[in-house]
Computed example of a mutant assay.
Amino acid sequence: MVKETTRSTDVVELDGVSRTYPGGTAVRALRDVTVSFGAGTFTAVMGPSGSGKSTLLHCAAGLDRPTTGRVRLAGTDIASVREPKLTRIRRAHVGFVFQSFNLIDSLTVWQNVLLPRRLAGKRPDRRWAREVVHRVGLTGREHHRPVQLSGGQQQRVALARALAARPDVIFGDEPTGALDLGTGREVLALLRQSVDEFGAAVVMVTHDPAAAAWADRVVFLADGRLAGELAAPDVDQVTARMTALTAAGVR
């Protein structure tokens, strides 16, 4: 499961990013985080509960705005870009795979897969979409609706939808969290394939050391700060690092 990839251009760069949520007691979810993610690389983001994992992903993807710092996505500084330009940038460069699948129940598999390109006002590449549907094992189910599919099949649709738009980066937020062990492994293999064969960057938030071991590196967060990283991780290394971080937070 350990991969050899060549890091190339950084697709996503966070430079000194902090994110504070106002309220009675302000919550500092991220604190001066600087990290980058290159094309053709698979990065897992891990940390104890409340460490800022999802906030990092949302800021990197342009779904949330940093309080301070810069975020560059495919060469564009998006921290101060306003909607709808930011939406256009996301549609052009980003794919998403979430734990909850986020499929449109009234659409077929095929319609869900083509949706991002259509929302972007671009003609879908049907030949490529058919190839992606085949690669994720959904040939013959193109006209099914999500309710007719298993959870693993729905996650395959979500991944096909992300890949069909040819994104520079795919963000996954616990993409295997709702799946059984075998199905989760299949989805991770497909994410791995999207890096190795399609050259995308994959950034995946996970709590599972076994899932993280599919990545080229693991970036750790604790209390909103970077807390180190592991290259070519294995399950034991990731588990040991997570155990240490969790124990340090309890004290």
Rank of each mutant, 00 (worst) to 15 (best):
V2L: 11
T5C: 10
R7K: 11
E13W: 02
D15I: 12
V17K: 00
S18W: 08
S18H: 10
Y21K: 00
L30F: 01
V33Q: 02
T34Q: 06
T34C: 07
T41Q: 14
T43A: 15
A44S: 15
S49E: 07
S51A: 15
G52D: 10
S54N: 13
L57I: 15
A60V: 06
D64H: 01
R70D: 11
T76D: 11
S80F: 00
V81D: 02
R82I: 00
L86P: 05
R88K: 10
A92T: 13
H93T: 15
V97N: 12
S100A: 15
F101K: 08
N102Q: 15
L103D: 07
D105L: 05
S106Q: 13
S106Y: 04
P116Q: 11
K122D: 10
R123I: 11
R123E: 15
P124C: 06
D125P: 05
R126A: 08
R126Y: 04
R127M: 04
R127G: 15
V133D: 03
R141M: 12
E142L: 06
H143D: 15
H144I: 04
R145A: 09
R145S: 06
V147N: 14
S150P: 14
G151N: 13
Q154V: 07
Q155S: 13
Q155L: 09
Q155F: 09
R156E: 11
R156I: 08
R161C: 08
A162E: 07
A165N: 10
P167N: 12
D168S: 14
I170S: 10
G172E: 04
P175V: 13
T176F: 09
L179V: 14
L181M: 08
G184D: 07
V187L: 13
L190Q: 03
L191W: 03
R192W: 03
Q193L: 12
A200R: 12
H207I: 07
P209L: 14
A213Q: 04
A213V: 02
W214V: 01
F220A: 09
D223A: 14
G224E: 01
L226D: 06
A231P: 00
V235H: 09
V235L: 05
D236Y: 00
V238Q: 02
A240M: 04
A240I: 02
R241Y: 02
A244V: 08
L245H: 10
A247E: 15
G249F: 00
